[in-house]
Design a protein around this nucleic acid. Structure first.
Lengths: 193, 193
DNA sequence: TGAAATTATGGACAAATGACCTTGTTTAAC
DNA sequence: GTTAAACAAGGTCATTTGTCCATAATTTCA
């Protein structure tokens, strides 16, 4: 489990073995069953999580039981509730496994120490944050702009490999439309092809 | 014009006069007429802008002439196209004045120098970025989730002072709905009250 | 001040979407 | 391997939303 992460970090940063070991040595291994939560509303987000294997989602449940999905986190990506983590205030969102997953967790204290101790690691971390900012901006434009069909096609383009791993109702929850609409779109696309 | 900014920065950071002067001394003053652009698609975003007075919007024009608004920037806020600015690549968005506005511009080179030279200023800058991240996350949830009416009410709650300064079609462009829908909502609310 | 542009609203109609239900299939779990 | 749960898809209908149009009010700027 650590080996995969170390390989990832090496490929992404080119940091020396020793430094990489330093990072991974502070992680806790964790296996999640399907639907098992890492974070629930009301809890303070204490950890940064790296997904070694599996698939995790960040979402919000509305009063009427609807699920709005902020993020899917597959292998080799990170996840956390930034706002809760940064400010150490109770979270408003759920983070939980879609598939059985293996994750590495760093406690905020340890992770902060790593960022301070290893400038190149901090740079890497900032690069990830930037990417997230750009992505969310683009996502807002897509949600604002497109027809449901355009949103769906955009989703496929952005996450081609996730399509087959996600139930439709989660894709709907990510795109902000009903399952019915999604079904209709796919039906229409089949007709055409 | 500088005085307002210096007052803002003092209030926000508590930095000493001298440092504040150091920051403001690198700014260029600029007055914008209504509808005058600061940034157009295809250009590289070279500056960070602080709005001293007026109101500016960041938006995207679709092929069919629809306007999707990413951000409103009133007095005492900052604006730029982060992605274009960070990477120095051509922008995809427009930034332009809604009202006649006064802005201060820092060239990226100068602003980067300030961030390096003044750690407390860098911290302040990071705080602003964080705030923006939280806000965009929340915005995605709101857009995904609510009925048009909820989105409109959320808008009023978030930007109570902007309501009267914006034409309806811009609010619609920010919320991702047609002007007609907005009109209907307001009509319904009048009936009820 | 006066002409031109922008803005808000409303009507009518068509199209898109969601809610609710059923059915058959696939997947997971014990 | 069997049972239970989750899932995709389709039908129907009511509602919502958008487009296109016209009109009246307001604002801008020369």
């Amino acid at each position: 489990m650590l080996a995969e992460f170390e390989h990832y970090l090496k490929a992404q940063t080119g940091l020396p073995e020793e430094t990489i070991r330093q990072v991974s040595s502070l992680a806790t291994k964790h296996t999640l069953r399907r639907q098992e939560p890492i974070l629930s509303p009301g809890q303070v987000c204490q950890h940064k999580a790296f997904i070694v294997k599996g698939l995790v989602r960040t979402f919000n449940l509305t009063a009427d039981g609807n699920e709005h999905i902020l993020q899917f986190s597959p292998e080799n990506t990170w996840t956390l509730d930034v706002e809760s983590y940064d400010k150490q205030v109770p979270s408003l969102v759920n983070i939980s496994a879609i598939e059985q997953s293996q994750v590495l967790l760093w406690h905020k204290t340890d992770f902060d120490a790593l960022l301070t101790a290893i400038p190149a690691f901090k740079q890497f971390s900032e690069r990830l944050i930037s990417r997230n900012i750009y992505y969310n901006r683009q996502r807002i434009l897509t949600i604002l702009g497109g027809t449901p069909e355009e949103k769906y096609e955009d989703f496929i383009r952005t996450f081609p490999t996730l399509l087959s791993r996600l139930p439709l109702h989660m894709i709907a929850g990510y795109l902000g439309m009903s399952v019915k609409t999604l079904t209709r779109i796919r039906h229409a696309q089949l007709q055409r092809s």
